[in-house]
Design a binder for these strands. Structure first.
Lengths: 169, 169
DNA sequence: CCTTAACTTCACAAATTTGTGAATGTAGCG
DNA sequence: CGCTACATTCACAAATTTGTGAAGTTAAGG
C-alpha cells in the first residue's frame, strides 16, 4: 500500500467543503484574469492545513495531470505567490503559500504599473508635452506614480496592523 | 465626397506617433489582462486631442470593423472607463474618456475585491474558524478588507493632490 | 552503477476566445 | 412616410489558449 498519500496528520477535513471553497475562490481569481490552473492550485494551498502541498497531492486533489501542476506552479512561483521547497530526504517538492509573501505579490502590480508608466512617458514625449493629448497622458502618468508611492505606504501600514491583530505570521 | 472623416479641427498630429503609442500602451493593458480591442480603443481615446472619438473614427484609426468597436465600447462603458454621449443633431455617438472618472474605474477593483471577500468568508465558515486553514483564510480576508478601506482613502488623497497640481479637470 | 521516483518539457487535440461580414434595428431628415 | 446613416446583434471562421499523454531529465538509494 502506498504510504497514505496525505501523509502527515489526519488530513481529512471534509474534502467536499475544501473542494467547494477551492473552486469558488479560484473562479473569482479567474474572473479577475488569472489562468485557471494556477488559480485552483493557489486555492488548494490556501485551504490546506499546513499551507504546503506536494505535487502529487495537488494532482490528486484537483484531478489534474502532473504537467498541469508543473505549469501552474511555475506560474505562481514567477509571480512570487508560492515558494518551492525541497524535502530534505526525498525528491519530493513542496509548494508553500507564505501568508506574508503573497500579499506583497498580489500588490506587486508594481511591475505592471512600472510598465504602464514607461509607455505613458513615451507617449508624452512623442505626442508633445504641450498638446492636449500630451497633457492628458501626463496626468495619467502622475496618477500612477502617485498610486505607486501610496501602495508602498499602505503595505507598511498593513504590516503594523497585521502584527497587532494576528501576531507574528 | 464624404465629409472628411476626421471632421472637426485639423486632426493630424503625426498619426504614426499616435498609433505607436496606442499600440504599445494597449499591449501593456493586454498583458495585465484586458482584452485587446477594448485596450486599443481606450488607448486611442487617451491619445486623442479632445478625449472623444466617434465610432467611425475609431474604426478607421484602428482598422477594425464596426462590430469590434461596438463590442469594445460596450465593455469599456460597463467598466466605467468611458462614457457615451449622443451628438445632439446626428445619430453619431461619441465616446469619451473623462480624466477623472476612469481613475476611479481602474481602482474599481472594488467590485472584484468584494467578491473575493465573499468567497473567503464562505471558506472560513465551512472550513471552520478555528482550523489552521480557517485562520489563514481569515487573515487573507482581513487583508482585503484593509486594502478596501485604504484604497478609498487613497483616492481621496489623489483628488486633493490632483487639484493642487493640475487644477480642475 | 543501476534502478526508480519524482519533476519537466514537448507535440498535439480540444475548447475557448476573438473579430468579421451580413442581417437587423432605430432614429433623424427630407 | 420612406430613405438614409449609424449602431448593434448574430453566426461562423480563424487564431489562441489550455491541459493531456508520452518522452526526457535528474537525483536518491540500493
Amino acid at each position: 500500500m502506498t504510504e497514505t498519500t496525505a501523509g502527515s496528520g489526519k488530513a481529512e477535513r471534509d474534502p467536499e467543503a475544501v473542494s467547494k471553497f477551492v473552486e469558488s475562490f479560484a473562479a473569482q481569481l479567474v474572473e479577475a484574469g488569472m489562468q485557471r490552473m494556477p488559480a485552483r492550485v493557489f486555492g488548494a494551498l490556501l485551504a490546506s492545513d499546513t499551507g504546503t502541498l506536494t505535487s502529487a497531492e495537488l494532482g490528486e486533489q484537483l484531478q489534474i495531470s502532473p504537467a498541469a501542476v508543473s505549469g501552474a506552479v511555475r506560474y505562481l512561483a514567477q509571480q512570487h505567490m508560492v515558494s518551492r521547497e525541497r524535502e530534505p530526504g526525498s525528491r519530493r517538492e513542496r509548494y508553500r503559500v507564505h501568508s506574508n509573501q503573497w500579499y506583497e505579490a498580489l500588490t506587486n502590480r508594481e511591475a505592471v504599473l512600472k510598465r504602464w508608466e514607461y509607455a505613458l512617458r513615451e507617449g508624452v514625449e512623442s505626442l508633445g508635452r504641450e498638446t492636449p493629448a500630451g497633457r492628458r497622458l501626463s496626468e495619467t502618468l502622475a496618477f500612477f506614480e502617485f498610486v505607486d508611492g501610496e501602495i508602498a505606504q499602505m503595505m507598511e501600514r498593513w504590516r503594523v496592523y497585521r502584527e497587532q491583530h494576528f501576531g507574528e505570521g
